[in-house]
Nucleic acid binder design. Sequence first.
DNA 1: ACAATATTGCTACTCATTTTCAAGAACTTT
DNA 2: AAAGTTCTTGAAAATGAGTAGCAATATTGT
Lengths: 166, 166
Amino acid sequence: MSTYTSGSFKAELNEKGWRLTPQRQTILQVFQDLPEGKHLSAEELYSVLQGQGEKISLSTVYRTLKLMARMGILRELELAEGHKHYEINQPYPNHHHHLVCIQCNKTIEFKDNSILKVGLKQTEKAGLHLLDCQLTIHTVCPEALRQGWPSLLPSNWSCLRWHSLP
Amino acid sequence: MSTYTSGSFKAELNEKGWRLTPQRQTILQVFQDLPEGKHLSAEELYSVLQGQGEKISLSTVYRTLKLMARMGILRELELAEGHKHYEINQPYPNHHHHLVCIQCNKTIEFKDNSILKVGLKQTEKAGLHLLDCQLTIHTVCPEALRQGWPSLLPSNWSCLRWHSLP
DNA sequence: ACAATATTGCTACTCATTTTCAAGAACTTT
DNA sequence: AAAGTTCTTGAAAATGAGTAGCAATATTGT
């Protein structure tokens, strides 16, 4: 389910009345060729495509990303950079979460299946249907600290304040 | 630490070379008067202020929200509606997370301190400094399901796919 | 192949948020 | 307490991610 052949991709599209186009195939391929843990923004994907000599318009890139996220093929990430990132949506045992440095935007992914359990529990308790759950950990990296954080006030964040450590 | 007097607010501002202004005081007050679990977007805050007869410009609203998030007074939430929301940043024992219906945008908050433990563990492991961690659970509510989701394709989401349930 | 309709690539547009800049307001220093 | 310095404000213009409208084109079901 995490890898699509052009056949299964077409089948899933057609099932909903959508069509398989070369553009959609190419974009899916880009994501499937991406190394583990790598995610792309719309603009980044557009650059990659241009680098490959593909001439797919930016509108199509945006539309395809949205469609594939809706289909559950891609996961849409909000990582605090002011624009979305997309990655192949890995099912349960490979489901992962992100640490982000809000200064340099570097991200690290990690797996922790207890998160998904919490997601399931809370969703069930609320009588809702689970789509995705994302633990995003906002951090600053050592370099940022050395550069005098937080007096630099780079971009958006919130400091965790503690009454007592857990 | 979760409630500020105008004195402690001023002290924290001045410590960093910033100034206490009536606008900043008023905005802090609005958040402190907000019921538990309520969060506001910039536009919403602007409306609240107008309703109170305060004439604070939208630019100042945006600037103040960003500043207070940077100070750690507010927490900045990315809840999938395409714009940010802010809430008073409750320290550890009151730290909470959100369930969001990606169809109607209704949010429910819940507490689960195991999340923060995961955040601490991962941050330490990566040698970073923890600022905040937010578990955002994307869901659809029963009404959305009844209305034929996901053929409606309302807005952005990703479907969780499972190899096997955890 | 044909008809029906989904998709593409333009361009123009929206909407949240940021920037610019001159005027006004807070601290700091006498 | 007045003066000087520098931060803030408000208004308007600018930015930037993402969307919508539309004519031309491509895919699908028959």
